[in-house]
């Protein structure tokens, strides 16, 4: 696949979709590595006692997963993600297949940036985490 350039980016271009299986062990590994070893991120039974449907994915991990969609799209082009904003709509439950998807929605000639919508979707098509990102393309 050819590297994305500012000139090649078109409104309506897609990011992904990328499907991947998020395991409980991956979530536990993230929780351990980031000092977030708390029951809601590591143990189903303890999470249920907090009123959750089971152990959930830390918000920062969802953010990281979404940023991977953008960074994969950037590739080795030299562009840089300068902003990623998210809204958490539903808990992201591990042991499910998630789909990452995005669309280019705007280009700014003045500052050579591209705006994009990105989200994490469940197997049922619910958008669990939605957001927007800005990518800058240096001259």
């Amino acid at each position: 696949m050819s590297e994305v350039t500012y000139a090649s980016v078109q409104i309506g271009d897609t990011l992904g979709p990328q499907e991947f299986y998020l395991s409980k062990d991956q979530v536990r590994a993230y929780a351990k590595a980031t000092g977030m070893w708390v029951p809601r991120f590591t143990d189903d039974e303890a999470a249920r006692k907090e009123g959750l449907p089971g152990m959930i994915t830390p918000g920062n991990m969802s953010l990281a997963i979404m940023s991977k969609l953008v960074s994969d799209w950037i590739g080795a082009s030299g562009a840089r993600m300068i902003r990623l904003g998210t809204t958490y709509r539903q808990p992201v439950l591990p042991d499910h297949t998630l789909t990452l998807q995005g669309f280019i929605t705007h280009k700014s000639e003045n500052d050579r940036t591209a705006e994009m919508d990105v989200w994490v979707e469940s197997e049922e098509g619910d958008r669990l985490v939605i957001g927007t990102a800005t990518v800058h393309f240096p001259r």
Binding site: E19, F20, Y21, S23, D25, Q26, T97
Partner: peptide, 13 residues
């Protein structure tokens, strides 16, 4: 219409 998403094979961390 959304195509069903298969339950993918777990990948190694």
């Amino acid at each position: 219409r959304r195509k069903p998403v298969p339950h993918a094979v777990p990948v190694e961390v």
